[in-house]
């Protein structure tokens, strides 16, 4: 089997810190899976995501996406939702859609407008006039309107109300290509656990567990949320 994402003993030290953010992390992710990247605050989730997206470079170790090192080509196959917005808030939603369509060959304008309509977001609205939840929805719509190989969603539903969360999860399920993989980092485990194929638990910069979600339910007889609470009990 060929892997979509492979990392090999990744280490990442930030300046002035003695303990590494990533501690020899090795991982191989296949295509066609929805994977939850779960871990407590400061466990290295976002560092890993930033390395995959080429926003940080590893201190040592290597990684490939679809066989390529992080770079322009890898970015053309990754659709990334950052934890913090990077969009110009004075832009109108329609301008953002045009911007993304211009930037990414695999972007579907039609898909974007369809999702905007069903979430009742007006294309003429400027980003800064929207509520926090609506802004997050716009970002997620932009990210999911691409036809990418790997979607990386860093905390995608945190600011969104529960009803819209359901809709967004539905959108995610029905919009990705079957051979694409979604890597989803979140603390809101109970909201997303039914859609996950696999779970990666990360702690102190290394992988604690990488297992199918159903296997955890079967073997432990508990929900992923309950299992997470047990593993990371303070």
């Amino acid at each position: 089997m060929s892997y979509l994402l492979e990392t090999n003993t990744l280490y990442k030290y930030y300046e002035k810190k003695k303990t590494p953010a990533l501690n020899g992390l090795t991982l191989a992710i296949p295509q066609g899976r929805i994977i939850g990247l779960l871990g407590p605050n400061g466990s290295g989730k976002t560092t890993l995501i930033k390395l995959i997206n080429g926003l940080l470079t590893p201190t040592s170790g290597s990684l490939t996406i679809n066989g390529m090192p992080p770079g322009i080509e890898s970015k053309s196959v990754i659709s990334y939702l950052p934890e913090r917005t990077c969009l110009q808030s004075s832009m109108r939603v329609s301008e953002l859609v045009a911007f993304f369509a211009d930037f990414y060959q695999d972007f579907s304008v039609e898909k974007a407008y369809r999702m905007l309509a069903s979430l009742e977001i007006h294309p003429d609205a400027r980003l800064k006039t929207l509520s926090k939840g609506a802004r997050e929805k716009v970002q997620l719509i932009l990210v999911m309107s691409r036809n990418a190989r790997l979607y990386i969603l860093d905390e995608p539903i945190a600011g969104v109300d529960p009803a819209a969360r359901d809709y967004i999860l539905k959108t995610i399920i029905s919009n990705y290509q079957e051979d694409a993989t979604i890597l989803l980092s979140t603390h809101l485990i109970s909201d997303i656990e039914n859609i996950l194929d696999d779970v990666i638990l990360i702690k102190d910069g290394s992988i604690l567990l990488y297992a199918p979600a159903e296997q955890i339910r079967e073997q432990r007889g508990m929900s992923l949320d309950a299992y997470f609470r047990e593993v990371f009990a303070c």
Binding site: G32, R33, I34, D166, L169, K170, I173, S174, E178, N194, I195, L196, D197
Partner: peptide, 8 residues
Amino acid sequence: AEAGVNPN
């Protein structure tokens, strides 16, 4: 999608 679960 109706059930809110993963297609797999």
